[in-house]
Write a protein that binds this DNA or RNA. Structure first.
Lengths: 294, 294
DNA sequence: CCCAGTTATCGTATGGGCTACGGAAACTCT
DNA sequence: AGAGTTTCCGTAGCCCATACGATAACTGGG
């Protein structure tokens, strides 16, 4: 299940998230045996193999060869540790930055984002255990937002953010499922097929054909022949394609040449409410405003 | 974070999930003071107000006026209790069944599903804490599958299930976010807007404009003026619309009258080419495994 | 009416989790 | 050498799930 820990103090977590920007260290006092990076890396390593719950303060400390309470000099609490782990992994995708080369047209760039994100959740399935609303506002998370937005330059600004949030939401949802699968596979030592097979008695003993005609019909027509994993992959591919198809209709450079049937959809795509930007003066106003990721 | 408990024994959990079909009770021995329904209801009530973690065995028992260990006569472990809670709530949407009246054309029926699901996650935000892969195979979950499939009768069988899984995946993802929001709002006593406002120093102190030109540009253009909750709502509306638009193209009764530009998209929808090449490669690593949500 | 059989109740104990607190240790600088 | 500062970490308190075994409460048979 998804962990919800306490709220974190921005004055403590933000400097930690952006710790690589501030390199000043204390010159006095007992020198530290570890670094925050060490703690984060240990947490990730444990979570990768045994799940987020296994990355307890005690176990992270043991892996680093220190006492449990020692960790609290590096990290205010386990909540912050998890946030740091998440942002670290998010940044680990190494999505192309502002000056970097891009893999072709915008759709391929989105596909790169999707591929990397899927791979990230496969490598770090415990990400699925962490909520991504009110995400860690660190470099890793911001890099994601920047990349996705940068691929949508051809979408009118009034609709660009909605498009980005939609893509991120869908991709994250699919990746999260993938991560949950990996997690369950490891924890149960059982594949999805095995899990379903073990529950075959459901159909013989409990399933009521009368109550489920649509399922029964589709079953008889072979509509469930593809296994659960393939179904999920199909759904991900289809959903992403349809979303990108729809977004491409919003792109400035294509609107003109499309048939009326499609332009009809275009209207009100983001609703009237999206189209009235009360323009903000400068980026200095940024304080106090909200933006969001997903 | 998402809870992952141990694997449950189908021989124990299936009879519990379908307990209302089998009404025979023991005639001998000490009569029970409670019922499984009582325990499930107590768990839901506590989780509704204080989150899933608060629905501990001790607290559920206390609410029912019995000792903690007493619960274990009704439920094998907390894992099963949570599964029962989930299926109960899933069924609580009371989606129209086989004979029941439907609210108009298929799109409206999907919208009903989406609305009810959103409402369910708002009323029971702890659902967001529970993984929905390898879901409880009870009446509540099966009713959902049946309903969604029943709305897609006009989609060719070869593509129907993929369409259903895609819709469920997207709607569930959006609803889950909504639930996480509700949860965080209550746990932190802080709205989303307040949370972002409290982190205004991010932009002044840590945000690097050079590294994030696309975000900066969009910010200056007013692209982030809508608050986080509105952004999420916009994304949900857009994503669902685009997915349904795409699926409607697959419907038998509409294919004929659509322009070629759209029919081009139609091809390969359920086919082998569904997965993007690079993605498929990565996926084979995971071979042998997962099914998903739905 | 009593007792065997059966089922439900629940007290205790074990082992895990997070972290507040406060003292000890290790370093620099004067 | 001593003061100041920072890190290290042992103890203890409070939460959790649940294995085990004793006890309570009921039914049906004699």
């Amino acid at each position: 299940m998804t962990e919800f820990s306490g709220a974190t103090d921005p004055d403590r977590i933000l400097p930690l998230l952006w710790r690589h920007r501030t390199a000043r260290k204390a010159t006095t006092g007992r020198p530290p045996r570890l670094s925050v990076d060490d703690v984060v890396a240990a947490g990730i390593a444990i979570a990768d193999t045994d799940g987020l719950a296994a990355a307890s303060m005690a176990r992270v400390a043991a892996r680093l060869g220190v006492a449990t309470m020692t960790l609290y000099t590096y990290v205010p609490s386990r909540t912050e540790l998890v946030e740091l782990m998440v942002d670290d992994v998010l940044g680990g995708r190494r999505l192309p930055g502002p000056g970097d080369e891009r893999p072709g047209p915008w759709r391929d760039q989105i596909q790169l984002y999707a591929d990397r994100t899927l791979a990230m959740y496969r490598a770090h399935p415990w990400l699925s255990e962490v909520s991504r609303v009110r995400p860690p506002l660190g470099p890793g998370m911001l890099r994601e937002s920047e990349y996705v937005l940068s691929t949508l330059g051809a979408v009118p600004v009034a609709r660009r953010n909605t498009a980005a949030v939609t893509i991120v939401m869908f991709v994250t949802a699919a990746a999260r499922q993938e991560g949950e699968n990996a997690q369950l596979r490891r924890a149960s030592g059982q594949s999805n097929d095995a899990w379903w097979g073990q529950r075959g008695q459901l159909w013989e003993q409990w399933f009521d054909v009368e109550q489920h005609p649509a399922m029964t019909e589709l079953w008889n027509a072979g509509g469930f022949d593809r296994g659960p994993d393939q179904q999920a992959a199909d759904a991900f591919a289809l959903g992403l394609r349809l979303i990108l198809d729809g977004i491409s209709v919003q792109r400035d450079d294509r609107v003109a040449q499309l048939p009326d049937a499609l332009n009809a959809h275009r209207d009100g795509l983001a609703g009237d409410d999206l189209a009235h930007p009360s323009r903000r003066a400068g980026q200095d106003d940024v304080a106090g405003q909200q933006r969001h990721d997903m």
